[in-house]
Simulated scan of single mutants.
Amino acid sequence: MARRTKLATFALLDATEVVELIALAGFDTVILDAEHGPLGLPQLAQLVVAARSRDLPALVRVASNDAQAIGAALDLGADGVLVPQIASLADAERAVAAARFAPAGHRGANPFVRAAGFAGSPEWFANANKSTEVHLMIEGEAGLDALDAILATSRCDGIFVGPVDLSHALGVPGELDHPTVVEAAAGIIAAAQAAGVSAGVFATEIEAARRWAARGADMVALGTDTHWTLRGFQTAVTAFTRT
């Protein structure tokens, strides 16, 4: 592959050591999950610091498309946000505007936060607008219908396929490899590529991740910290009981 797909994973656990282990394992990005994990702002703050200490880029999947949640995650020093359940162009524009300072958006402005190095530099605002990533999750039929408009006008940095919710929306709950889900996800990735927008996707298995990379995904989020921890323990128990 001429282009290298970034490998990410989701972190649901409130453990700075897990974030460090993700970095040491060689992942390119960690996605701190405030939608499905028990992570509030105090926990996210510590996990972002842990990621920074290991030079690991960190995105925060916020719990919802909420301007305060998006701004707070970015103030903590996250490199960007992953916003779930984008179902319309209005949803997309709302998420992007919440992550950008005026005049590009309406993110609350405070240059004395971690993201700004606590320094109060007025130059930071323009730099943050350029460097902060906003990835939008397409997870349902409404999002699929609005995809072309989102890609054309929302100014997002990336589109991310949420195949678990998508499988429910398409009538095959939990069947991530179902042809209907795969076709829809592949269509999202192709549309993002055509628009020059980064495309990401979640995969639970390594072979699926490889297939999405071959199809042009710029980022594949492979499993979760809970998923890999359980598998590691299961592998150890299985190996022991077979001896």
Rank of each mutant, 00 (worst) to 15 (best):
F233V: 15
I138A: 04
P38Y: 05
A169E: 07
A169W: 03
P103D: 10
R231M: 09
A51D: 06
A199V: 04
G187P: 05
S121C: 05
A69T: 10
A72L: 15
A217W: 03
A184W: 01
K130L: 14
L230N: 06
D225P: 00
A98S: 13
L41V: 15
G223Y: 01
H168K: 08
D145A: 15
V220E: 04
H178L: 07
D157V: 00
D66N: 15
Q85P: 00
H36R: 11
V19T: 08
E205C: 02
D165E: 06
M1K: 12
G120W: 06
A185Q: 01
L82R: 06
I188E: 00
V19D: 08
L74W: 10
F101M: 08
E20S: 12
N110P: 00
D79C: 09
A11H: 02
D218W: 02
V134G: 04
V81R: 09
R210F: 03
G26W: 09
T229F: 14
A69D: 10
Q193I: 02
R3C: 09
C156N: 03
E123M: 03
A191W: 06
A102L: 07
A51Q: 06
A25Y: 09
A126E: 13
R231G: 00
A184T: 07
P38W: 07
G108S: 15
P103H: 09
A102T: 10
T238G: 02
L39P: 01
A72K: 15
L170K: 03
G108Y: 03
A51I: 05
G158A: 15
S121H: 10
R4Y: 11
E123D: 15
L13D: 11
V49F: 07
V164Y: 14
A209R: 01
F118E: 07
A78E: 11
A128Y: 05
A119N: 11
A221C: 14
C156L: 12
R114Q: 08
A25Q: 12
S53W: 00
R242S: 13
A213Q: 12
P111H: 07
M219A: 04
A184E: 05
G174T: 05
A23N: 10
V197P: 00
T204M: 15
V18Y: 00
A128G: 01
D148A: 14
Q46S: 15
L222C: 04
R3Y: 13
L89P: 02
A185P: 00
G120A: 04
A92D: 03
V83E: 04
S167D: 07
A11D: 10
A51R: 07
A102Q: 09
I86Q: 09
F112N: 14
L47E: 11
A190Q: 13
A102S: 14
L222T: 01
A95M: 09
L144C: 07
L13H: 08
A90S: 15
A239F: 03
L170Y: 06
A73T: 11
H36V: 06
A126F: 05
I22L: 14
V96L: 11
E35T: 05
